[in-house]
């Protein structure tokens, strides 16, 4: 086959998906940034000409608390998911194959279940007349006036619930590849259980932890349905503000400006991860030098 021929064949299989994604993914993402500099038109569309008015107006609205809440809830969700997923993923990687298949299925099925229905289930559980409240009151952990639903802890709880499988699966995959003999070697060389865990096991599954962090943190930053359905009016996240601007206010340029900000916020952890991933080879080189 000639090089020219091969090139033509490459374009033939690449063009359909490349074209589709350029038109319906890359272009709209850039368009959101451009529309932030357009005026709104009164019919909910995009006006003509270019302006800084949208951005100036955004600067006047107090977004600080909303941004702080978005970052706080996303960071807490990520931390709790990791704290649960590291032991859970490790355990899944170690059990006997037959049991492993069953346990993995038990983790995956809720993850495939309709997202809205899972959020709805929590609304039922946390409802003032719901089962969880009754149990808590009976045990004496809550008084009859405690409000479970429509609160920030409720939002956090459902976010952890929703994103937990995203953290468990990559950590399980990394832990499965980890050679357990390394832990024994560390113990034999005098490391305590905690030392072996922190210095040998965690770096060993580092890639899995990093993937898990991104898989939880980035979608968490874009949460919208969870604060909308289990949070109260005071628990808006950035996502809710975007939806309000787009649907209630019918102001697409303002919704775009907020989306552009959220896009940049979602890119930040990715960039950070890219930086972190460059480090392991350097560490390895240092270790090799030390060994020599």
């Amino acid at each position: 086959m000639t090089a020219d021929h091969l090139r033509r064949e490459e374009w033939a299989v690449t063009l359909p998906s490349l074209g589709w994604l350029l038109a319906l993914f890359a272009a709209p993402t850039l368009l959101v940034f451009a529309v932030s500099f357009r005026p709104a038109d009164p019919y909910g569309g995009i006006g003509a000409g270019w302006t800084l008015a949208t951005l100036r107006e955004m600067a006047r609205t107090p977004l600080g608390p909303v941004i702080a809440r978005t970052v706080r809830l996303s960071a807490l969700t990520t931390a709790i998911c990791l704290a649960l997923a590291i032991p859970c993923g490790t355990c899944l990687a170690r059990v006997a194959p037959r049991r492993q298949a069953v346990l993995l299925l038990l983790v995956v099925v809720p993850f495939w279940t309709s997202f809205l229905i899972r959020v709805f289930a929590w609304r039922m559980l946390l409802h003032p007349e719901g089962p969880l409240k009754r149990v808590l009151v009976t045990v004496g952990l809550a008084d009859p006036h405690t409000q479970l639903l429509y609160s920030e802890p409720a939002v956090l709880l459902v976010m952890v619930y929703t994103f937990l499988p995203f953290a468990i699966l990559p950590i399980y995959a990394a832990a499965e590849k980890f050679d357990l003999a390394l832990l024994e070697a560390a113990r034999d060389l005098g490391a305590g259980p905690w030392g072996a865990f922190v210095k040998v096991f965690l770096p060993g599954i580092g890639r899995g932890v990093l993937t898990a962090t991104l898989m939880v943190l980035i979608p968490a930053l874009g949460s919208y349905v969870i604060p909308d359905l289990v949070g109260g009016p005071g628990q808006d996240m950035l996502g809710n503000r975007i939806a309000q601007r787009a649907f209630s206010d019918r102001n697409l340029p303002q919704a775009s400006a907020l989306s552009a900000a959220l896009t940049l916020a979602a890119l930040a952890p990715m960039a950070l991860a890219a930086l972190v991933q460059r480090r392991p080879p350097a560490l390895e080189a240092a270790a090799r030098k030390e060994a020599a």
């Binding site: 709209p28 993402t29 368009l31 979608p219 775009s256 989306s259 979602a266």
Partner: peptide, 21 residues
């Protein structure tokens, strides 16, 4: 990069950008 990116972008941003388009 184009095939991979939609997997990490939050749904909300994808919906919003397509609406604008």
């Amino acid at each position: 990069a184009l095939v991979y990116s939609p997997l990490v972008v939050p749904d909300l941003l994808m919906g919003m950008s397509l609406l604008v388009l």
